[in-house]
């Protein structure tokens, strides 16, 4: 049984109607849709951002460049996926915690983190994180100590933000691949 609410069934139908009109005009083909799925399921995702973070955790010179000019520093990784014309990387430290949002729409660094998760695009996160970041982060399982200042980055223009999480103890002894596996999408948004 299809338990999709009626209005969402209607949205789905309209999406398929638009698709069929575009296909008829020769502007779209089904494989384009498969390609979009493959692109964001396989090639563009948080694994890209994790590579950048893992490198910054052990390469001090790279980290300096990354924080000074994120756009330039990530060029060598040749990521595709869009939405990162200018990248600013903000560093979590023992005195500061950073978290990213887009209150006006859902701007997000696709090339580094893939497509945003639903909660990032939903009203609860977008409305509350600017007003009560400590409470929202605590609800999401991240207690930010009172000694740490919180900076919320509201991506209201074309600059995209990514958080450089603090390096976990012992990470320097791991291999690059193992370090990458420690880096989660949520940590790079700043909610974990």
């Amino acid at each position: 049984m299809d338990d999709t609410p009626t209005d969402m069934r209607q949205v789905r139908l309209r999406a398929e109607a638009l698709e069929s009109l575009l296909v008829e005009r020769g502007l779209l083909m089904e494989s384009d849709i498969d390609q979009v799925i493959a692109q964001f399921e396989q090639r563009v995702g948080p694994v890209n951002g994790a590579k950048v973070v893992a490198r910054a955790w052990t390469d001090a010179e790279f980290k300096l460049r990354l924080l000074a000019d994120g756009t330039d520093a990530i060029r060598e990784f040749r990521f595709s996926g869009g939405q990162v014309e200018r990248l600013v990387v903000v560093e979590n430290t023992h005195v500061e915690h950073n978290v990213v949002v887009c209150t006006l729409c859902s701007c997000y660094p696709w090339a580094l983190l893939g497509l945003p998760p639903r909660w990032y695009k939903d009203p609860a996160y977008r409305s509350r994180i600017v007003r009560e970041p400590r409470s929202v982060l605590a609800e999401m399982g991240l207690e930010v100590p009172a000694s740490k200042r919180i900076r919320v980055w509201d991506s209201s223009a074309e600059i995209r933000y990514m958080v450089l999480p603090q390096r976990p103890d012992g990470a320097e002894a791991l291999s690059e691949k193992e370090r990458e596996a420690l880096v989660t999408r949520d940590a790079m948004i700043g909610v974990a």
Partner: peptide, 28 residues
């Protein structure tokens, strides 16, 4: 930003890039 009353942030485990085919269709 700052609106109140939307409740808790709900996170999905193992969220796919697209939940249903029509979402990818709209993207394409």
């Amino acid at each position: 930003g700052g609106k109140q009353g939307f409740g808790k942030v709900v996170r999905e485990r193992q969220e796919p890039a697209f939940h249903e085919r029509w979402e990818a269709s709209v993207h394409a």
